[in-house]
Amino acid sequence: MKAQFIRGVSLKELLDPEAMVWRGVKPEPLLLSGTPSALQPTLAVRAAFPEGTIGAVKNVVVAAAHNGSEIAFRLEWQDHSADTGADGQDDVGFPDGAAILFPTRKGAPLMTMGAPGLPVNAWYWRADENGRGRHVTAQGLGTSDTLDRELVKANGIYQSGVWRVVIARSLQTRNGGSAAQLSAGGKTGISVAIWEGSHKERAGIKSFALGQQEGWHELILDRQA
C-alpha cells in the first residue's frame, strides 16, 4: 500500500472523507478475516464467539495520503447499519469501529497485538466518539491502553449503507517508545481492523487485514517530491 504525497493539503481537508482531494488518491481493496476464536483471552469470550462467527465485515477499501507532516487513511466499507453504541440501544448495543495498526518495533507481532517490550500502536475510531480518535498502544492481548485522545483525528460519515472514515495523525510524535514514528520516503508494517457493532463486535472480536510480512501489510510513504 502506498501513501501518496500531496503537497500543501491541509489536515482539515484530508479529514473530510468526501473531499475532492481523495478522488486523486488510488485506493487499495483489502480482504479482511475474523480474529481466531482460540486467541481470545477468556473462556466466556470464546464461548460467545466460537470459531467462524467472528469478522462480519469482509472487505475494506483503503486510501492513504500524507503532506509531509501528517498522514491520513480513508477507509470505506459496506455496513447495513450505523451503530453508535449502547445509549439509545437500551445498553445492549455496541458501536461500529475501525483502526489502523502499526508495529512500533521490528518484530512486534500482529496476531497477539504486540508482545511485552514489542508494542503496537493503534489509531482508533469509534462511531460513538466520532470526530476524535484514540491513540492506543498494546503489548499483548487484552493490554491495549489509550495513550491520549488528542493526537489521532478521526472523522466518519455514514451514507446509504457505506461508512467512509478518515483516521489521521502527525507522522512523528513526541512519545516515541510506544507510538509509531513514520517518515516520508519510509516504510512500515500496517494492518486495518473493523468492528461491526450490530454483530456485537468489540475488543478482540473484529475483522482484520492479514498481510504477507509476518501478518503485516506494507505501507510505503511517498517521498516529498
Binding site: 473462556l43 466466556a44 470464546r46 464461548a47 460467545a48 437500551d90 445498553d91 445492549v92
Partner: peptide, 12 residues
C-alpha cells in the same frame, strides 16, 4: 466448568 451461554440484560 465451561462458560454457559449468556445474554446481556437491557437497561429496561
Amino acid at each position: 466448568g465451561n462458560a454457559r451461554p449468556a445474554r446481556l440484560p437491557s437497561r429496561k
